[in-house]
Simulated scan of single mutants.
Amino acid sequence: MLASPSFEPASQPLASAPGDAASLARTPDDKAMLRAAVELTRDLGEAKAAIFWPDMLASALIGYAALAGAILSANMGIAIACGVLSALAFYRALLFIHELSHIHRTALPGFRFVWNVLVGIPMLTPSFMYEGVHPLHHARTRYGTAEDPEYLPLALMKPWSLPVFLLTAILLPVALLVRSAVLTPLGVIIPPLRRLVWARASALAINPAFRRRPPEGDFARMVFWQELGASLWAWFLIGWSATHGWRPLLIGIGVIALGAVLNQARTLVAHLWENEGETMTVTGQYLDSVNVPPPGWLTVLWAPVGLRYHALHHLLPSVPYHALGEAHRRLTAELGTGSTYVKSSYAGLFPLLGRLVRSTMGQRSGV
């Protein structure tokens, strides 16, 4: 596993092996890089409807068509191929939830509603599960600390933690179904349960210590309608399956589980996970994050919707996914191959996984 080659050619030399996590936390800010990141991308901040809408709609359409093929096909090979295609398409469509957590609420009129109707609610993952949560991951004083909902020092944990982290994603579709069909309705009549479910099971977070604050105002009203839609859909799925057969639902659960595992693998390499809770500089956060730039083409499958530029996204969280490639080209040309900027560029999924595994193997001694 440690020697597994990348499926993609290296676009930049690999960064050095895991080192002193504390030194990364205390990395001083590279002011030239931060200034260039702002100045060179001033014209790239607009979320373009002509890109967002066709991309999201096509991904959802392919996902549903391929899912129908997986359910209806009598040929096992064709059914499996359709299931994999459906998982990849739905995975891309679902990851627009990341963009929704960043774009201004007045941008792309109707996009949030349509995405929730076509993708978020059918996948039992409405946008409220990321909106209001993901921005905390970008907060200057929260990143990499105990208050970051999307951070764990995985590189400093035991080797067994990685397969456990990856395989728990298989349970996600069933957990979401139980949440929407059982826990949410019960929470209406049992307020303490409602508060518990909201605090502990209403966010796409990986930090088990994270507790979500109660929603307020317009956001609370949005949560109400999204949860109602998800609960009605969950009841429909169970009722239909109970009367017409469970095969379609089980295939759907398998498709979503495959996408969830792929996303969990992507999460494993989105950062270096080397911070032990210290507050980090912006440059330290950048160097603890990962870009996997071209020419590798498989990256668009496992890190779609701009997530191949995750480190750059931490520098410029307001730049939409479709502009990150251009931003990367400009910054690379301006700052050069010996700059701090290129130190967050890596060759592909497997070298990054290998680095993470090697780091956890160093944690074998001790309790």
Rank of each mutant, 00 (worst) to 15 (best):
P293Y: 08
P293Q: 06
P294M: 03
P294E: 03
P294L: 04
P295T: 12
P295M: 06
G296I: 00
G296R: 00
G296C: 08
L298P: 05
L298S: 14
L298I: 06
L298A: 12
T299Q: 13
V300C: 07
W302N: 03
W302L: 03
A303D: 14
P304Q: 14
P304K: 15
P304S: 14
V305K: 10
V305L: 12
V305G: 06
G306Y: 01
L307C: 01
L307Q: 14
L307D: 02
L307I: 02
R308W: 10
R308V: 03
Y309P: 04
Y309H: 15
Y309S: 05
H310I: 04
A311E: 00
H313S: 01
L315D: 05
L316H: 04
L316F: 12
P317A: 11
P317Q: 08
S318R: 15
S318H: 15
S318T: 15
V319R: 00
V319N: 02
V319D: 00
P320T: 11
P320K: 09
Y321P: 00
H322A: 07
H322M: 06
H322G: 06
A323S: 15
A323G: 08
A323C: 13
A323Y: 00
L324Y: 05
L324H: 07
G325L: 09
G325I: 00
E326T: 14
E326D: 09
A327Q: 09
A327R: 04
A327S: 12
H328A: 11
R329L: 13
R330L: 09
R330S: 09
L331W: 10
L331H: 08
T332M: 00
T332S: 12
A333Q: 10
E334C: 14
E334D: 15
E334T: 13
L335H: 05
L335A: 10
L335R: 10
G336T: 11
